[in-house]
């Protein structure tokens, strides 16, 4: 453990910036999200769960795959400096590991490079993540349903705790140790500081909601795939897609060409399984024409299919979709009702 006095935080961020493109939570026009910072003053150190998730650092809403023109196809130069992220929450760090299974690796055919996404890999592969402990979890946080927690360090390079006057920094990975090991602005932490962290951690843990038992979720959801409960649950959804765009693990995208004359670029753009055209075929046939089918797809993908394909849920319990939904469709309620559906014999409420 190291101690970083807040008086030297700016120095630290500037040091980090020499080697890394440093992203941190910022507030712009009242909305929070991650952006490149070059001084500590730019950082919003109070925000817990940012409105927009940090997935956009590694998987931007719109990204050039390549440019084309008279001279053929050219991919963009890869920026030299790798990415560092300060102030990323435990749930969001885990979302990146989840996305890494989809983009970064080739789970289906491990020997096959075709299934590795070069755009994701060049960003995520060399990144340095300074995770931030959640001292004051929000009522919409439910990361503990998925094995997470406000002090969970999975996937971080350095774990940080805001202890008031100073930050405590704990290296988690070798890469993290290497970076913070020799920094002059850090001092070794003492006994009393460690005690303080334990106290804060216990306090934070006590604020988490009751855990839901999800051991059987994958199988259970497949079992009730054809039950009428889905129509009922999805009735109020307006298919706006807000839940999927703010979600740190949703990864659906479209590929489009943007041309001007004979020049142009092929881009990939976030897309959403909540939109009917997402699956509509040229013939007019649409396998998920109904809202019910699309809501079911979102739930099945996150809590059943992903478990089967990647061995883990595609949800971190960050609560963003709960906060953003205009009709208050709360994914925690949806899950609870689905999981207890058989037991009740019917769905009430």
């Amino acid at each position: 453990m190291y101690r970083l006095d807040k008086g030297r935080f700016d120095e630290f961020i500037r040091l980090l910036g020499r080697e890394y493109r440093t992203y941190a939570p910022v507030r712009t026009a009242g909305r929070t999200g991650f952006a490149i910072v070059d001084s500590a003053g730019m950082i919003d150190t109070d925000v817990l769960v940012t409105d927009m998730s940090p997935k956009e650092i590694f998987f931007p809403p719109s990204e050039t795959l390549f440019r084309y023109g008279r001279n053929g196809i050219k991919t963009d130069e890869v920026p030299e400096r790798p990415i560092a992220v300060w102030g990323i929450r435990s749930c969001d760090v885990r979302s990146l590991s989840m996305l890494d299974r989809v983009f970064g690796s080739a789970v289906q055919m491990p020997e096959d490079d075709r299934f590795k996404d070069p755009y994701w890999n060049h960003r995520y592969g060399s990144s340095l993540l300074f995770g931030s402990a959640c001292i004051d979890p929000s009522p919409t946080c439910f990361c503990n349903w998925f094995g997470g927690g406000p002090f969970n360090k999975d996937g971080m390079d350095v774990f940080t705790v805001d202890a008031g006057e100073y930050y405590l920094l704990e290296p988690v990975s070798g890469k993290g140790q290497e970076f913070i090991g020799g920094l002059a602005c850090l001092a070794p932490a003492g006994e009393s500081e460690l005690d303080l962290v334990s106290a804060i951690a216990a306090e934070a843990a006590s604020r988490m909601p009751e855990e839901e038992d999800l051991k059987e979720a994958g199988r259970k959801l497949s079992d009730i795939f054809d039950e009428p409960v889905w129509s009922e649950l999805s009735a109020k959804c307006v298919n706006c897609g807000a839940c999927t765009f703010c979600c740190p693990t949703c990864h659906c995208f479209d590929i489009q060409d943007e041309s001007q004359g004979s020049e142009g670029r092929r881009v990939r753009i976030w897309d959403s399984c909540m939109f009917p055209i997402f699956t509509r075929e040229a013939s007019g046939h649409n396998p998920r024409a109904l809202s019910k089918e699309r809501v079911r797809q979102r739930i099945m993908h996150k809590y059943s299919y992903s478990l089967e394909n990647y061995g883990e849920f595609l949800c971190t319990g960050c609560g963003r979709c709960v906060l953003v939904c205009p009709v208050n469709l709360d994914i925690r309620d949806v899950l609870r009702r689905l999981l207890h559906y058989r037991a009740e014999g019917k769905c009430n409420g």
Binding site: I255, D271, M300
Partner: peptide
């Protein structure tokens, strides 16, 4: 089988039937 596709490599999330992606599985 046929499904609407984009990436063809199991990333864009469009072509699944159940847990299987038509483009890779």
């Amino acid at each position: 089988l046929e499904r609407r596709m984009k990436c063809g490599i199991g990333k864009c999330g469009r072509c699944n039937i159940g847990s299987r992606y038509v483009c890779i599985d």
